[in-house]
Design a protein around this nucleic acid. Structure first.
Length: 268
DNA sequence: ATCCCGGACT
DNA sequence: AGTCCGGGAT
C-alpha cells in the first residue's frame, strides 16, 4: 500500500467526526464500558444487524447481569434468549468464554488472551479492547473495510492483514472508542453496501432455508422440553420424518444437541 | 420467490 | 476454503 499523507488522514478524521456529531446513533451497549457487556454486544453483533440485536441485548444483560451469572446458568436459559438471533452455536461459545474468564479471575486485556476464548477472533478481540478500554488500536469489520475501500485507502483485493495496518494509520490518538463507533455508524448509514457496491468477503451458508428453520425450531423446542424422543420432535415441531435424522445429526455435530440413549436434549 | 448480509471455527 | 442462521430488501 502506498503511503497515506498526514493531511489526508486528518481530513478523513475530521470528516467522519463532523458527520458523527450530527448523526451518531444511541445504542444500549454504548452506555457502558464494562467489558462483559461489551463482550455480549460484540458477539451478538457479529451475526445480527443492530436493530435486531438491541432487544436481545437488553434481555440478555437483564437475565445474566454478570459473568458469574452467565457462566453458571443452564445452557437452555441462554439459548432461550439467544434463540431467534441466528447462529446458536455462538450462544454456547459465549457461555464457554464466560466460564473461561471467570476461571481467569480477571478480564483479559490483550488481543492474544482474548483470542484464546471461544468465538473471539481478530475483529472481536480488538473491538472489546477498544470499546471497553479505549485502547489505542484499530479493528476492521466489513463496515470499516467498505469505508476504507470507498475512501480509496484500500482496494477490494486488499488482504485482511493489510487492512488492519491501514486502519491503524487512520486512528485518531486517544479516541479509538469514539472513532470506531463513528466508523460503524458511517459505514452502516452512509457508505452502505448497496450504495457503494462493495461486496463483502464472507461467503454464505449453503444450508437451505428450510433446514435452517428446522434446526432453529428444534433448539427452541428443546429450551422448553428436555430429554425428548425423536418421534416427539417430529410431531411437536412438525418436521418431515425423512429429514429429522440429518437435522438432528447436524445439531449434535455442532454441539447444540446431545443424544442420551434415545432422548435428545440440550447440552449439559 | 430470490438474493443479500456477517465473524469465527474447523 | 467451506460452513453456520434468520431477517430484510428487492
Amino acid at each position: 500500500m502506498t503511503n497515506i499523507s498526514e493531511k489526508n488522514i486528518r481530513n478523513f478524521q475530521e470528516k467522519i467526526f463532523a458527520w458523527w456529531m450530527e448523526n451518531k446513533r444511541s445504542l444500549p451497549w454504548r452506555e457502558t464500558t464494562d467489558p462483559y457487556y461489551i463482550l455480549i454486544a460484540e458477539i451478538m453483533l457479529q451475526q445480527t444487524q443492530v436493530n435486531r440485536s438491541i432487544e436481545k441485548y437488553l434481555e440478555f444483560i437483564e437475565e445474566f447481569p454478570s459473568l458469574e451469572k452467565l457462566a453458571s446458568a443452564p445452557i437452555s436459559s441462554v439459548l432461550k434468549i439467544w434463540s431467534g438471533l441466528g447462529y446458536n452455536r455462538r450462544a454456547l461459545w459465549l457461555q464457554e468464554a464466560a466460564k473461561q474468564i471467570v476461571e481467569l479471575k480477571e478480564f483479559p486485556k490483550t488481543q492474544e488472551e482474548l483470542q484464546k476464548l471461544k468465538g473471539i477472533g481478530p475483529y472481536t478481540s480488538r473491538s472489546i479492547l477498544i470499546f471497553a478500554f479505549n485502547y489505542e488500536i484499530a479493528t476492521v469489520d466489513t463496515n470499516i473495510r467498505r469505508i476504507l475501500i470507498a475512501e480509496k485507502f484500500a482496494e477490494e483485493e486488499t488482504k485482511e492483514k493489510e487492512l488492519f495496518i491501514i486502519a491503524q494509520k487512520l486512528l485518531p490518538k486517544g479516541r479509538a472508542r469514539d472513532w470506531h463507533n463513528a466508523l460503524m455508524d458511517y459505514g452502516s448509514l452512509v457508505l452502505t453496501a448497496a450504495k457503494t457496491g462493495i461486496k463483502p468477503k464472507t461467503t454464505n451458508s449453503e444450508k437451505s432455508k428450510e433446514s435452517r428453520r428446522y434446526r432453529g425450531l428444534i433448539v427452541k423446542y428443546l429450551t422448553s422440553y428436555s430429554k425428548v424422543k425423536k418421534e416427539q420432535i417430529v410431531k411437536d415441531c412438525n418436521i418431515p420424518e425423512e429429514k429429522v435424522n440429518d437435522i438432528l445429526l447436524g445439531l449434535i455435530a455442532d454441539g447444540l444437541v446431545v443424544k442420551i440413549k434415545k432422548n435428545y436434549t440440550l447440552p449439559e
